[in-house]
Design a protein around this nucleic acid. Structure first.
Lengths: 111, 111
DNA sequence: TTCTTATTTCGATTGTTATCGAACAACAGA
DNA sequence: TCTGTTGTTCGATAACAATCGAAATAAGAA
């Protein structure tokens, strides 16, 4: 089985986190995970090819934002809430609250 | 005199703000402005060419993060604190606090 | 008007990224 | 073992971004 690298808590960098979350698709993915707790890639209806979705999942994982757990043929994504809160208190919530109250999520509603 | 376009408060997008702040140089610029209230481009000692600095200032202005005021031959940059707080409550502070307590600012200390 | 200072714009370069489809790999169930 | 499901990797493409130096601009001072 493939080993998925997750950065250590201390290796999570602010710029990388902000960059990873500056993409509307990834922001949407993260907000979906936040709501559901854990989601698979196929679970999320985003208007991109599955290879693109895979790329986004990888970006989020390498930035230290999500944890990926292998379960059969699926990958379960969850937020690294504690680690992020430890490193950057209040950041994730501020971003996700902003996303929820913005119009940026609207473009995914009918996709 | 050249007109500098600043996006309206309602035109500030979360992704653009996060993207603009995902660059270490720009993050440093913003943290310097935050401390001083207002700064000129030449004021800030960043390890990049002046044309590059100009590019970063433009990115921050177009993302709606800074206001640029012309004063003689200089441009005074200030944070659009109120607008950002209105659109994304707590976001800017969470990011700047994270930056201050991270090691990311260290790379600029001796430049 | 000429010089100086502060900053922008231009053109070029180099590197990165988002995207896709096709091929591949891992697993589960029949 | 075959088949379908799930997701990754590969190769390609097109767009974008960070960077620089040189030239241009704009305002003020001499």
């Amino acid at each position: 089985m493939k080993i998925l690298h997750h950065p250590d808590r201390s290796e999570i960098h602010l710029s990388s986190v902000l960059y990873a979350l500056s993409d509307p698709v990834r922001l949407y993915i993260v907000s979906e995970i936040k709501k559901a707790g854990e989601r698979t890639c196929g679970d999320m209806s985003v208007p991109v090819a599955k290879s693109t979705l895979s790329h986004h999942a990888r970006t989020l994982r390498e930035a230290g934002i999500v944890n990926v757990r292998v379960h059969g043929t699926q990958r379960l994504l969850s937020l690294r809430t504690e680690d992020l809160e430890f490193r950057f208190p209040g950041l994730l919530n501020a971003i996700l609250d902003a996303f929820e109250s913005s119009f940026e999520k609207d473009q995914f509603l009918n996709s």
